Computed example of a mutant assay.
Amino acid sequence: MTTPATRVAIVTGGSGGIGRAVAERLGAEHFDVVVHYSGNADKARQTAGAVSAAGGRALTVKADVADESEVAALFDAAVAEFGGVDVVVHTAGIMPLGPIAEMDLADFDQVQRTNVRGTFVVDQAAARTIRDGGSIVNFSTSVTRLQQPGYGAYAASKGAVEALTLILARELRGRDVTVNAVAPGPTATPLFLDGKPQEVVDHLASLAPLERLGTPDDIAQSVLSLVDARWINGQVVYVNGGIA
């Protein structure tokens, strides 16, 4: 197998939070990075600038991850600009919260469309496009173990992500492509912090033996480890400071 001089990564949800941290870390490793975004072009451009400053090249592409035509265009853009795809890190997702008995079914449907269908569509494109020797990293959540009230729809979507991850790893037999999922615990991102009172944040920070929230950089470090590891495959890696 011939290894390209520069590896190419697509990072979905790269406009902020964990996605931006992952994109920057890959840029520091001299990857060419396609920064995907769904709505905030300015933040995506900021991430691209950070990737360039870190040492990589960057391209921003807008797409709805649950739309197969738009995701196909995202992958086509990576191939056209950088020559191929070696790594796909799928961080894009949404997290509407609410008790199961009270959640509007439209909200439930939206989280399943984005988190489950979106993962399926991105993984399908990745499986068709990624070069041999590559890596796919999906995103689950430690809530699948913590069973926190209010997270039913979100946890259900991420349980599906885990199943897709483990099966895809086995379907790509013979191509030297690893497929894993990262399952972060409470992490200080806008997605996690939005709408939570400070006392709730403080309580969640106290749960882990390390007595703090995770940071986007903590999660990005775990992603890079999985990208570089060639003997970790078909696994869900819990990155939560020991909370679960």
Rank of each mutant, 00 (worst) to 15 (best):
V89K: 10
R117S: 11
A78I: 11
R113G: 00
Y238Q: 14
T114C: 08
L166H: 13
L193R: 04
D194Q: 14
K158D: 10
P216V: 01
V79M: 05
E68F: 08
A181S: 04
K158E: 07
V179L: 06
A126D: 09
E70H: 05
Q124K: 15
A54W: 05
V239K: 04
P4W: 06
A101N: 01
S52T: 07
V8L: 09
R128I: 02
A153P: 02
G55F: 01
A54N: 02
R7I: 05
A155D: 06
D123W: 03
S69Y: 11
V177H: 12
D109L: 08
I232C: 12
A92G: 07
D176N: 15
S140H: 10
E171R: 12
V237W: 03
H203L: 10
D76T: 06
A9I: 13
G159M: 02
Q147G: 10
A183L: 08
A153G: 02
E81V: 07
P190C: 11
V22R: 05
R25Y: 00
A181K: 09
A106P: 01
A77H: 07
G133T: 13
R173N: 09
G174I: 02
A169N: 06
Q147N: 14
A50Y: 05
A41Q: 14
Y37Q: 06
L213H: 12
G185C: 10
A106Q: 13
G195V: 06
D64I: 00
V122T: 15
I94F: 01
E199P: 00
L224M: 03
A78P: 13
I219H: 07
E162F: 09
A41G: 12
A163E: 13
G83H: 00
R145P: 07
I130V: 15
Q46I: 07
G152T: 03
I130M: 13
Q110N: 14
G174R: 01
Q221C: 08
R45H: 12
Q147P: 05
V200E: 10
G16A: 14
T12Y: 09
G133I: 08
V227H: 11
T165W: 04
I100G: 03
D132V: 04
L172H: 11
K43L: 00
